[in-house]
Amino acid sequence: MNVLVCISKTPETTAKINFVEGGTAFDSAGVNYIMNPYDEWYALVRAVELKEKNGGEVTVFHVGDASSDIVIRKALSIGGDKAVRVNADPKDSFFVAKQIAQYCKDNPQDIIFFGKETIDYNGAEVGSMASEMLDIPFISFASKLEENGESFIAERDIEGGVQSVEVRAPFAISSAKGIAEQRIPNMKSIMMSKRKPVAVIEPVESETLVEITHYETPPPKSGVKLFEMENLEELVRILRDEEKVI
């Protein structure tokens, strides 16, 4: 079974978010970048588990410049067999999806794994786009994926519950909490990852249909107003009469 795991690079969860150049660019000064947690903890680990059971190959796929090599090496230390880096700025979702689709047309995969979304843009766009470009099923927000003979059974998170579906390879899946448990690479796997191949390929071009014209940070909260136990009715009145939320 050959699977592709698409990983992206994001500022870490605790990073300070600022913009420069008049709100047109993200301020990356002092920002620490990590592998997108949903890609790492869930998509990659489930892909590696399936390979460990069935054999085959896990290819880690990333769009980014050479500064991404550190997250690619981490993915290889967690269990990817090889990596492909498209040497380009991941300028928008459509561009990234197009690189994935092109690679999979040239190198067919049984399953393409994504995280449920990235923690920076929170768009959940690339998996759906790449699936359409490849004309394959897409199981989104999957909290479970199990083999079932010739097919697979997945559970996907929906509003207030779960939906279970049966799907046959090839398909794409976006991974949420529950599908796998985070793995911490040990020293041996970190050393081994340095010998695994990373191919660098050039991008295919795509049209830019959407652009970000302005960024800003929301105004800070004005500060918490504290209430004593004997004044809780006053709090409820404020919620009703001033905030008008109840």
Binding site: I17, I119, I212, T213, Y215, E216, P218
Partner: peptide, 11 residues
């Protein structure tokens, strides 16, 4: 964006 830590205008 960034789980509510930023806002962006998309054209």
């Amino acid at each position: 964006l960034f789980s509510g830590k930023a806002l962006a205008d998309y054209k």
